[in-house]
């Protein structure tokens, strides 16, 4: 790795850290400003005495100034200590950890499904541009983009679980294969919208490349269509990789709804429960983790341009054509 590339990587890393810092501040401020007395909330149905409130306030530093509170929170968060859940009374870190597996499995399965189906379908649609097959695929992808995961999930449950009985209705199952079997419908429901999105972006990217002069030139010197397509795909890889990065962010929004619909005890469901219960520490922690994963994904996507696109590699030494 040469010097400018390293500089580029470091600059992007710095920007990501700055963004994360800003996001954590935003997240914390949001909770800080949210209406309702947190201390009172924490006591729940127990006896609300002034002493109890004061004790809670002291324990959770609720009387400290905003920035002090923020500092306490964020400095502990980087060590993995996200505080105590109001709802369960247990530490937030292990709580989240126990819920991560199921979400990672569902989201991973959905990601694979949508990428492995979406990219090829998008390519086929682009190559057959304007033909009936393209219109059909584009039509289906518009429906996919328009269909919220939970609505699709319920329809899938109705047809495949209740109607046909091929898949279980709720729950996580036992063992690996059974567990996977339980995750098929949730993953498909999550993957549909995602896959449709990938189809749209892939198709647009490939269509744009197919219109370039270099395609005409390649055909003009007798390269077979398969070789032309290989060249086109190499060029279209950049927007496609970007779309895969965006998918990760999209996944987190969708997973809340899917886990609620299929009663899966994952991070999404934890988010829903915590939001409804106003369990501030858990919501803060979850939001921060999502922000972290999304930012790191964006960073990885940016760095992958260095591998895919020689122009980005060169532009790290920023040169611009002089005006004539």
């Amino acid at each position: 790795m040469n010097r400018p590339v390293l500089a580029f990587a470091l600059r992007r890393l710095g920007a990501t850290l700055l963004l994360l810092l800003a996001l954590s501040l935003l997240v914390f401020a949001l909770m800080y400003l949210s209406p309702g007395d947190v201390a009172r909330n924490m006591l729940g149905t127990r006896n609300v005495t002034p002493e109890a409130l004061a004790e809670i306030r002291a324990r959770y530093h609720l009387d400290e100034p905003f920035l002090t509170q923020y500092w306490l929170w964020v400095s502990q968060a980087v060590t993995g200590d996200f505080g105590t859940s109001i709802r369960t009374g247990g530490p937030v870190g292990p709580l989240m950890l126990s819920r991560t597996g199921i979400t990672a499995a569902t989201a991973g399965l959905a990601f694979l499904l949508s990428a492995l189906v979406g990219i090829p379908v998008g390519i086929v649609a682009a190559v057959r541009r304007g033909r009936p097959l393209d219109r059909l695929l584009v039509g289906v992808s518009v429906v996919g983009v328009s269909a919220p995961g939970f609505a699709v999930g319920l329809l899938l449950l109705y047809v495949f679980a209740l109607g046909l009985g091929w898949f279980p209705i709720y729950g996580t199952g036992d063992g690996f294969l059974d567990g996977l079997w339980h995750l098929v419908l949730p993953a498909v429901a999550l993957a549909l919208g995602l896959g449709a999105f990938v189809v749209k972006l892939t198709r647009a990217a490939v269509v744009r490349e197919l219109d370039q002069d270099y395609v005409t030139f390649a055909r003009g010197r007798g390269l077979p269509e398969s070789a032309v397509l290989r060249i086109v795909l190499r060029n279209a890889a950049i927007p496609i990789v970007t779309s895969l990065g965006l998918m990760v962010a999209y996944l987190f929004g969708g997973t809340v709804l899917i886990e609620v619909t299929f009663a899966l005890p994952g991070l999404g469901a934890l988010m829903e429960e915590s939001v409804l219960f106003k369990d501030v520490p858990v919501v803060q922690a979850l939001t921060l983790v999502v922000a972290f994963v999304v930012s790191v994904t964006a960073l990885v996507v940016d760095l992958s341009y260095l591998l895919i696109d020689p122009r980005v590699r060169a532009r790290t030494v920023r040169t611009r054509a002089v005006r004539g």
Binding site: L30, V256, A298
Partner: peptide, 15 residues
């Protein structure tokens, strides 16, 4: 930097 739907859930739920 954050998924809109997720952020909406958090904000709408908290605010």
């Amino acid at each position: 930097a954050l998924p809109a739907v997720l952020l909406a859930i958090v904000v709408a739920g908290m605010v």
